[in-house]
Amino acid sequence: MRAEAAPYQQIAAEIRRSIESGKLRPGERAPSTRALVRDHGIAMATATKVLATLQQEGLVHSRPGVGTVVGPPPRLSATQQRAPEPSLSREEVVRSAIAIADGEGLAALSMRRVATDLGVSTMALYRYVGGKDALVLQMVETAVGDFPFPAKRPTSWREGIETAARLQWSAYRAHLWLPAAISLSRPQVLPNLLVHTDAVLRAVSGFGVDASTSLYAAITVFGYVRGVALNLEPEARAEQDTGMTADEWSGHQTDQLVALIGQHDLAGFRALDFGSFEFDYDLDQLFEFGLGIMLDGLAVKLQRMRAPLR
C-alpha cells in the first residue's frame, strides 16, 4: 500500500493545481509561510519546505521586497546584470539564512544559496556577515534572541531554571537546526547564549555551592534540553518523508514488538501489556517529564553538597 504524501507535499500539490488552473497567475503573490502556517495549521519549517519545493520546480520564485511570487525568476537583460546590487542589512542576510535552514536544514545552507535568494552576488554577502561559519554564529545568536527572558525576575531557583530551559526548548522547536549548531563541549561565546547560562548560575547561587559545581549545573541543564531537542529535526523529517507521525509509525511495529517481548521474555515490557496499551509519544511531554526529574535530582544534589535551599 502506498504511503500517504507528507503534509508539505500535499500542500505543495494544492498550490501547484492552483497555478496550473490559472487561479494563481504569473506575477501574483503565492501564499507566504505565515499564511500557510495560519491556514493549514503546520509548523513554520513545513511551510518553508512547501515554498522551497515549488521554487525547485520553477513554479514560484523569491522577489526581494515582495515575497514569493508565481512563475520562474525573470531573465535579466545585459543592462540589468550590470546594475548595482541592492543594499542589504546584516539582519536581512541572517534572516534569509535562517529561513533556508528552517526549511531545508543546515546542510542546505551555503553563501551562494543565501545570495541567490537575496538576488545578490555571493561575494556581496561577505561585507555583511563574513564567511559561512560567522553567518551560522549570527544565526544562532538571532534565533536564541527571538525568545527573550521576561522582564519579571523568577521568584524561586526552580522557576529560574524552568524559564531558561523552556525558552531554549521553544527556540529549538522553532528552529530544528539550532541544537546541532550549538556546541556543548566548546560553547560559542554569544551574548544571548551567555544570558541563558547566567540565568542558571543565578538560580543555583542560593545553594552556596562552589563555582565548579555551579558551572556543571548550568552545563547539565543546557545538555539536557539540547539532548532532547536533537531529536526534533530527525523526527520532523521522518514524518515528512513517511507521512506518518511517531505514534502512527509505532503502531505499525506493535505486532513485531509483542512477538519479540514473548520470544526474549522481556518482563518489563510484558508488564506494560503492549497488546492493548497505547503510548502517546510526544517530545514536548518527554521534555517536560525529564525537566521535572532533572530539577528534582539537582535540588537533592545541591542541598547535600552545601547550603539548604532558601
Rank of each mutant, 00 (worst) to 15 (best):
E4M: 15
E4H: 11
Y8L: 15
I11Q: 02
I15V: 10
I19Y: 01
I19N: 08
E20R: 12
E20W: 10
L24V: 05
D39Y: 08
A45R: 04
A47V: 00
L51R: 01
G58K: 11
H61N: 11
R63N: 12
P64L: 06
T79E: 14
E92G: 09
V93E: 02
A97T: 05
I100A: 00
G103E: 04
A124I: 05
Y128Q: 05
V129T: 00
G131S: 14
V136W: 01
L137N: 10
Q138K: 15
E141P: 04
T142A: 11
K152E: 14
S156I: 08
A164D: 04
A165S: 08
A165Q: 05
L167I: 08
Q168H: 15
S183G: 09
L190N: 01
N192P: 02
A199K: 06
V209I: 10
D210Q: 14
T213K: 06
T220I: 01
V225I: 08
G227Q: 02
A229H: 02
L230D: 08
L230P: 00
L230Q: 07
A238Q: 14
E239L: 02
T242D: 02
S250W: 11
S250V: 07
G251Y: 04
D255F: 09
F269N: 08
F279K: 13
D280P: 07
L283T: 06
L286F: 12
L286G: 11
L286V: 13
F287S: 03
E288D: 13
L302D: 00
Q303K: 13
Q303A: 15
R304V: 09
R306E: 12
